[in-house]
Nucleic acid binder design. Structure first.
Lengths: 346, 346
DNA sequence: TTCTTTCGTGAACACGTGTTTACAAAACAT
DNA sequence: ATGTTTTGTAAACACGTGTTCACGAAAGAA
């Protein structure tokens, strides 16, 4: 392990200046004249010298590293989405000369697991952390914010919570569902049901709120038996329809699914019961999953720009790191209806 | 930014011992008696103290961080595979208390791009790096190994290259293709063609070697016009078949594709020309892509265990980091034939 | 020319930790 | 009771860098 033997002292000796001057050259101090600067730079380039990061950080500089924490509650989300989220964060960070430390949280209720996360922050491995897939108001995240760490959260919204160092980016789930209801009403639907997602996550309650508001706005009654629980998974969509059919109640003419996976599950169950889509039942999803344009029929859904979201969040995080004064942001991003073949005018 | 105000000196004062003793407690020195240890640990826990990583590294400890470099030559590989590779590395590293810094290399021929990679190594941000998607004998990787950095490479094989600090894990592409030929010969095929992958990558030449060897072993002639170039992408499989059909030469009765994507492209082109699979043409792929069991017909292919590969590679990398003596490994992993519906006895 | 200001740079200190050295106190052996 | 080993801990140094402070040299002003 003979590497890393070159340091700023050696560079200083070779260039015939003091170590301070080397440091000034590296950090672009204007006081050093061009002749000296070039003399030092020549040696630096020749010896492939890069300042040691640990020493720089110890001396007060930033790590230039962002932690990316992906919370995966049981369900393995090995789909293309998390890949895109990750790529977007990495590329955006990279463009600002920042690095990304990726970490997977298998179970955010396991003390051992969250201790590992706290360790990363307290050890000073990262300047800030981004959490993906967190429940609303996850205690250990609140604790980190309370300790003064900079935290970015995706798809979460805590009304009234605008503390320093909390950067929140969310999609406008509420307005999305309202738009979905508007669209279905425009197709003459009056009996509209919903399969929601996990109510502990932000998107669940938000979508519920939107549904209630929109139905009330159109003067339509709310049938409790058509508001089905789910957890954002395909299986839960399947189970919701199964339960609904087996309960024997009249079916709605349209269903809003919390996301495309749920919609796929529901479509499978509906197919098995001989309910034709969109002839007998219109269905609308969320997220514009890659498979949505391959399903049978092609799924009408809402397109959400994950790349835009993560890029914006990452830039805001970097701003928070570099600004001394405390920084907080709460951005809501609209989604866009993509009309395909799963809804029909009645 | 009031955090991180707690350090080992404070802990020492609060526990009524010297800073050295605190350090000894943290690093599990046997010389400190249980009473003292407990006294110190109590304060450490109470104040949520974690040693500062930068200071530890500066004092000689390891970063406990592995760089994961994903080389993406133009083609965006946003598929499930890279996600699994990443997850496997992170989980394995995490189990040994190591962290992963993920970096995307958009173009490994761009000097700016490779300078960014070198910077990560030379700054001491990582103890070792893993490269995914590298060409054989990529110059900047060789340079890093030459500098004494620990490097892990996936799916590469440089005969005779067993230098220290080079950890190579590859699938046995050569034997895989030989097995494929054996299987097809067992189905009475004699006219066997191949659509290969990028010859600059390891898997390309290895598969070609295997093909030549196996055909010769069975005493079958090598038809040069049936050995088609490709680059591991769906499009290249499509183009290969298009070219073959348009050239007017007699078609083989079976084709070995470099991977499943290539096979899918080939199947699409064959379908467009009215060639039925497997009736008129048998086809066999590699990698057991998630879509392979959904294609029409379901694709016979070779299953490769990426998780096993990355996990093994990561563990070996950690061994190299922690062992003082130089370490090198070159592991070849077999693949397993998965028979589905795309090959037929003639 | 002499005094003042600007410019350039070296010396010294700080950051937080691991480790080596040295030394006192306790335990043991005679 | 005295000499010897063991045990536990404190003080000092090292790691590589950024930054402050002070000071000499050069440039400008009177």
């Amino acid at each position: 392990m003979k590497k890393q033997e070159i340091n700023s002292t050696k560079i200083a000796q070779l260039a015939g200046v003091s170590r301070s001057t080397v440091s000034r050259v590296i950090n672009n101090y204007p006081s050093v004249p061009p002749s000296t600067r070039e003399k030092v730079m020549k040696v630096i380039r020749e010896y492939n010298y890069f300042p040691n990061m640990s020493a720089q950080v110890l001396a007060g500089k930033k790590m230039r590293t962002i932690g990316l924490f992906m919370i995966e509650k049981g369900h393995v989300s090995s789909d293309a989405t998390s890949n895109m989220l990750l790529a977007s964060v990495i590329e955006t960070a990279s463009s600002k000369d920042y690095y990304v430390l990726t970490h997977i949280i298998r179970d955010s209720r396991d003390p051992e697991s969250i201790n590992g996360v706290k360790e990363i922050f307290y050890q000073g491995r990262i300047d800030a952390g981004i959490f993906i897939g967190a429940d609303n108001h996850e205690p250990f995240i609140e604790e980190l914010i309370g300790e003064g760490f900079i935290v970015g959260i995706v798809d979460q919204h805590l009304p009234g919570r605008h503390e320093a160092n909390r950067i929140v980016y969310s999609f406008d789930n509420e307005k999305g569902v309202m738009q979905a209801v508007d669209y279905l009403v425009g197709l003459n639907h009056k009996n509209i049901g919903m399969i929601n997602g996990d109510m502990k996550r932000f998107a669940g309650p938000a979508k519920y709120e939107g549904f209630v508001k929109a139905m009330s706005h159109h003067g339509l009654p709310l049938h409790e038996e058509w508001i089905l629980p789910g957890d954002f998974n395909r299986r839960s969509g399947y189970a919701a329809i199964q339960g609904l059919v087996q309960s024997g109640v009249k079916l709605p003419t349209a269903i809003i699914a919390a996301n495309d996976s749920v919609a796929f599950g529901a479509m499978k169950a509906l197919g098995e019961h001989g309910v034709a889509i969109p002839e007998d039942m219109s269905i609308i999803g969320f997220d514009d999953h890659v498979l949505s344009s391959y399903s049978q029929p092609k799924l009408t859904t809402f397109k959400v720009d994950f790349g835009y979201m993560m890029s914006g969040l990452t830039l805001e995080i970097i701003k928070a790191i570099e600004n001394h004064h405390d920084h907080h942001v709460n951005v809501t991003i609209p989604m866009e209806l993509v009309v395909r073949d799963s809804c029909k005018k009645i």
